[in-house]
Design a protein around this nucleic acid. Sequence first.
DNA 1: TTTACTGCAAATTATTTGCATGGAA
DNA 2: TTCCATGCAAATAATTTGCAGTAAA
Lengths: 172, 172
Amino acid sequence: MKMKVKIKNKKEVSPERLSKRIKISPKNRNGLERLLKCQAKRGLKYSKKRAAIIEYFIKADRHYTVEQLYNEIKEIVPNIGYSTIYRTLRLLVDCGMARTHHFGETDTRFELVHKEQHHDHLVCEKCGRIIEFTNNGIEKFQNAVAKEHNFLVKNRELQIFGVCKRCQQRKR
Amino acid sequence: MKMKVKIKNKKEVSPERLSKRIKISPKNRNGLERLLKCQAKRGLKYSKKRAAIIEYFIKADRHYTVEQLYNEIKEIVPNIGYSTIYRTLRLLVDCGMARTHHFGETDTRFELVHKEQHHDHLVCEKCGRIIEFTNNGIEKFQNAVAKEHNFLVKNRELQIFGVCKRCQQRKR
DNA sequence: TTTACTGCAAATTATTTGCATGGAA
DNA sequence: TTCCATGCAAATAATTTGCAGTAAA
């Protein structure tokens, strides 16, 4: 079992530079604002590499493994280290700008939080494709189940594993 | 990324001893039969320790971490090693007698497969309690979503995280 | 000039595997 | 006797952290 002790530094620093440097479409505006607040609260400085990672991650908008992200980022930012990717993604998660999943794999996948709506995933076991979906019916029944058990819902995660349309066609 | 190469030995051996030694209630009968077939197919021998682990795991019928199971088993079978727990649980999973989950934790939890019905979990973030439930409505909507996407469903996993009834009451 | 950021190597955690030895068939 | 099962230690995999040098503010 893993035990963690976290030491947090808090200090005021203006994060304007980060917001100027990162070019983001409007849909990510509020996510970015959350990030800036979070940075300010922690007294983080602007950093070229971190900004590059965040910008890339936001633009790509995929369900990344650290390994995948590392491989793609290092083409743009040579000399980048694994730790920086890990640290940046952890920051995004802590700020609520990213979310983690384990789609039946050993390593963690990071997903950008930019939609207001909760969504779930179809995970293709052949090609690894991940398809997002939202379904109100499922949510309603989940709430009903929780109520039955007097369970206070904080979060939920649903994955449907199988074979996507494309891979089914490919087989024939 | 982890790469695996598995070498399998197949040989005929009678698994009668295991079935005699493990005392199991009727509801686990078919699970046990699957296990015995699986053992026979692989040419596995009977083993006192393995039998003890399996029997304990079946009787307890909980969502075990390897660590938890190890700690409890070693009281009964002194001198047991972690590897044996790992190897036995892997065997159970391969035989379809156990299933793994990651309830937002880093380590794997193992669950006994003894119900015919698929079920999902309410996971209490305060006390770690895991409550199983089945809900046909959720399943129907899941199937509908899959059909919409022409997705061939192989498996599904739903977790609802939050605070259980007991822990909510405790807070006040 | 202070203090955060980064890469690297070493540490941690969860899990698996090689090997010598004990035990089942 | 044969060959699987086990414990232990070493290996692996994913992730985190310490540290010394670099770069923001």
